[in-house]
Design a protein around this nucleic acid. Structure first.
Lengths: 162, 162
DNA sequence: TATTGTTATACTCTATAACTATA
DNA sequence: TATAGTTATAGAGTATAACAATA
């Protein structure tokens, strides 16, 4: 990679190291940059082999955690719209990974559960990820790893601002 | 919100608290969940008012940090394809926020710089975000906040796995 | 009258392929 | 022959609106 120097045209901005440093203190920026890494890591560890996208794993994981959730609550947890979640669940149901079940108390609502196949897939993917991430992110100590997860969980808990 | 109990159909998965706990130890999962929060936070703090999307802010921020980067390197930093970055830069250039400049050493390459207007926008957005996020994520102490950012930076640094 | 979920549809985003200009 | 960037185009993802069924 050859180093280049630009034709300064006068109407560009001058440098400022202070400004540069400030960007590193924005959580959203760092989360976005970290997400690029974790998505690539996911695809490397499980995505290709299990034919599972990050979103699909997250959906399965959320269903796994909240087996009695309705589609509406699942959509809220993923911050996507209702028609959107319908499409994703359609696809997962076609692959026999999840199953829509009618609520016994509210006949409008559907509840989503993993099938044994879906549960198996999530379990396998989870194992691969837990073991794989420790290797991928071996620049973090075990303590740092656990701290990071705890702090991210705190961030994720905040969903409303006013 | 009414609590419901599903019609168990026999082919659904039984529960398992151990499995549930394991999901929380996947960095990618926690990053994805945190990103939902930080994107919502961004839109609340600057997105609407400055008509800037998270991606656009990230692009401007990256240009701000690396003013001599070529489009190719910018695309790599964002993990998007070349045609994709062309479109984003087109839009930002139309708004007079960035400027393409021909490299003096490689006549194929273009280097991207912020215009004064672009630099002003990033600076303002940065200020809003730094102040705003501290309020939004007030469930984190200042120390935790700094630790989180440092650890995310470590994660973001890992981009290749083999 | 409000809510759950689906369908229809349009819009945005992203990726692949083909092209040019230059190295 | 390989690389930087653009254009053209198709596919995937997402959102809004309208609808049926139920609360």
């Amino acid at each position: 990679m050859k180093k280049t120097s630009p034709d300064l045209a006068g109407e560009v901005t001058p440098e400022g190291e202070l400004e540069e440093a400030r960007l590193h203190h924005i959580v959203g920026y760092q989360v976005a940059q970290a997400a690029i890494s974790t998505i690539a890591s996911f695809n490397f560890l499980v995505g290709k082999e299990q034919k599972l996208r990050p979103v699909e794993f997250t959906i399965l994981a959320l269903i796994r955690e909240n087996p009695d959730h309705t589609l509406a609550r699942l959509a809220q947890a993923l911050a996507v719209t209702a028609p959107n979640i319908t499409t994703w669940i359609d696809r997962l149901e076609e692959r026999k990974l999840v199953k829509r079940m009618q609520s016994s108390t509210d006949r409008r609502a559907l509840q989503i559960r993993l099938t044994p196949l879906g549960a198996k897939l999530v379990a396998e993917a989870t194992t691969r990820l837990i073991e794989g991430e420790r290797k991928v992110y071996k620049n973090l100590s075990d303590t740092e790893f656990d701290t990071l997860i705890a702090l991210l969980h705190k961030v994720a808990g905040r969903r409303t601002f006013n």
